[in-house]
Design a protein around this nucleic acid. Structure first.
Lengths: 151, 151
DNA sequence: CGACATTTATAAGCATGCTTATAATAAGCG
DNA sequence: CGCTTATTATAAGCATGCTTATAAATGTCG
């Protein structure tokens, strides 16, 4: 374990940079495709998360998106102004809203799912299904490690 | 190949989100550690890339960092103001500057290398050396795919 | 040489995310 | 009940990165 650790020790910086580079390139690629349609990756992520479960509170949704609640607020402001989402008051807690998709969001979601598919196809070109699963699993564990609060 | 592709098709969105989440968590984790010292991850990345090769032109450095040249400009402005880097005029091309680290950058680099090591240790806790290499390799291939211009 | 294109760095303005601070409501507890 | 604390959403302001536009220097080619 300590041996393994030392073995890869030199790549502390590389790993961080590699991951960030990959994320940045992914975002750029997707945004380039989405720009023509006026929707960005960040806003699409909100819709996508909502499509998995509507009616969440903003705080819950932010938690699942690994984003600060305030960051979500502005995205929702914009999406609501464009009629893609609704904020409905919670009947039991007057502090919070429940977030729902509107009908208008469905075509946008469909479109953006297609763009995501294209970006993914390019990003993972030449990857076997096993390798995709591997990457997915490794990233999930990495996230898990970083989500835990302990320093 | 088409079979492999279909096999993982459902995770087009998940993969993108997984990767971005991981990158964001990594940045947050590092920044939390670095905040006390007044240096952020982005600025440290500039120093780190420079430490591998000084005297690059801004355009070259930006290219290697997968960042737009203009994004680097502001980082260099700040780092220069704090005396961590120098812009020296290129004797053969009056358009460009060559970027160098100053003496003052060394302790900062040393410190930040340590912080990166801590973040990495937490992020990769429980990973074997083989898994770290795997992740590294997969990310490198992903970046390679996205760097190619073809749509 | 001289007009046009390319490259290098920068400026302006936008999008996104964060920290810190506020207001309203809810919950806990004497 | 009344006071204190926690939670929910938001506001203000900063950091970072991008697209598009500009200025200066260089390269290209008639």
């Amino acid at each position: 374990m300590s041996e393994d650790f030392d073995a890869a020790k030199g790549s502390a910086a590389e790993m961080s940079i590699e991951l960030h580079s990959a994320a940045r390139l992914l975002r750029r690629n997707f945004d380039r495709r989405a720009k023509a349609h006026g929707l960005s990756r960040s806003r699409w992520q909100v819709l996508w998360h909502l499509s998995r479960e509507e009616g969440q509170k903003q705080a819950e949704l932010a938690e699942r998106m690994d984003v600060a609640p305030i960051s979500l607020t502005r995205q929702l402001d914009n999406l609501q102004r464009e009629g893609l989402v609704e904020r409905r008051p919670d009947p039991e807690d007057r502090r919070c809203f429940r977030i729902y998709l509107t009908e208008a969001a469905q075509p946008a979601l469909e479109l953006l799912r297609g763009l995501a598919q294209q970006t993914r196809a390019q990003a993972l070109a030449g990857f076997s299904a096993a390798e995709v699963r591997q990457l997915h699993g490794l990233l999930a564990r990495l996230r898990e490690n970083l989500t835990r609060e302990e320093v």
